[in-house]
């Protein structure tokens, strides 16, 4: 069974986000970029399925600027077998919308014929939480989002999902799209020898135009602003003072 894992190059999880003064977006020039953390979990899960003998090949794909090659090399160093880069933008500030990404992925799925696509539940930049669901709709496949447990038996996968109020377990018929949540696994670090090996693994480059997908955005970003700041509060000296303040405000 072949598994396809889409990965996105995003601002590093630990970098402080700065909104550009002119309101045109978030400053990404000369900022550390990394693989979207949810996508790392997806790559890890695919590799574990290969190590268990369930999967035979793990193909990673990234859509965006040419620098996303670095993200793909990271996935190859973790243990993916092969990578595909779909160039769809020149400027690092251009975010390809989930609908266009899903259309590109649908084309790649058509070429690669995986039985399972494992994706992150959302990217930490646009926070849309949509690509997996959209890809599933376009392909007419089953979907299991927000996975915290995944097992594959025969032509079905059993997935435990993180939902409001607890957990839900569903069984999806393959081929399927699974999007992953934080608790599914802890991604490995790539070892130095594996980083060296990854440089020799195959990485194909295509363009969105090659695949015949229009990536023009449907949503125009009118402006990007800092969130409203909260007014500074006050420090209280004791539990008694805190209780008095809360009672005064009628909160308790």
């Amino acid at each position: 069974m072949k598994i396809l894992v889409p990965v996105k190059r995003v601002i590093d999880y630990n970098v402080k986000v700065r909104v550009k003064a002119d309101g045109s977006g978030v400053d990404l020039a000369n900022v550390k970029m990394s693989m979207n953390p949810f996508d790392e979990i997806a790559v890890e899960e695919a590799i574990r399925l290969k190590e268990k003998g369930v999967a035979t090949e793990v193909v990673v794909v990234s859509i965006g600027v040419k620098q996303a090659q670095e993200t793909l090399r990271t996935a190859l160093a973790m243990g993916a077998d092969r990578a595909i880069l779909v160039e769809a933008a020149d400027d690092v500030h251009t975010d390809i919308e989930p609908l266009a990404v899903a259309k590109i992925l649908a084309k790649i799925v058509g070429e690669e014929q995986p039985q399972l696509v494992i994706a992150g539940k959302q990217a930490i930049d646009n926070d849309m939480n949509a690509t997996g669901q959209m890809l599933s709709a376009l392909l007419g496949w089953s979907q299991a989002t927000f996975a915290s447990e995944l097992s594959v038996e025969g032509d079905a996968a059993t997935v435990t999902r993180e939902v409001d109020g607890g957990l839900q377990t569903i069984k999806v018929r393959l081929p399927a799209i699974v999007t992953v949540d934080l608790r599914l696994n802890e991604p490995r670090y790539a070892s130095l020898p594996n980083i060296m090996k990854a440089k020799k693994k195959p990485l194909d480059v295509k363009t969105a135009a090659d695949l015949g997908v229009d990536v023009a955005p449907r949503l125009t970003v009118v402006k990007t602003a800092e969130p409203a700041a909260r007014a500074a509060g006050e420090m209280v000296g004791s539990v008694d003072e805190l209780v008095a303040k809360l009672k005064e405000k009628g909160l308790v």
Binding site: I11, K16, V17, V19, V26, E97, P98, L99, I124, D125, N126, D127, M128, N129, A130, M134, P217, R218, L219, V221, V222, K223, T224, A225, E226, P227
Partner: peptide, 27 residues
Amino acid sequence: MVISDVSAVIDADTFERPVYAGNAVQT
């Protein structure tokens, strides 16, 4: 396109939503 997590409705076509874990608000 889906518009996820709308935090304010400006008009019939225009919406605000948080991005970057709430570190920015996009219209």
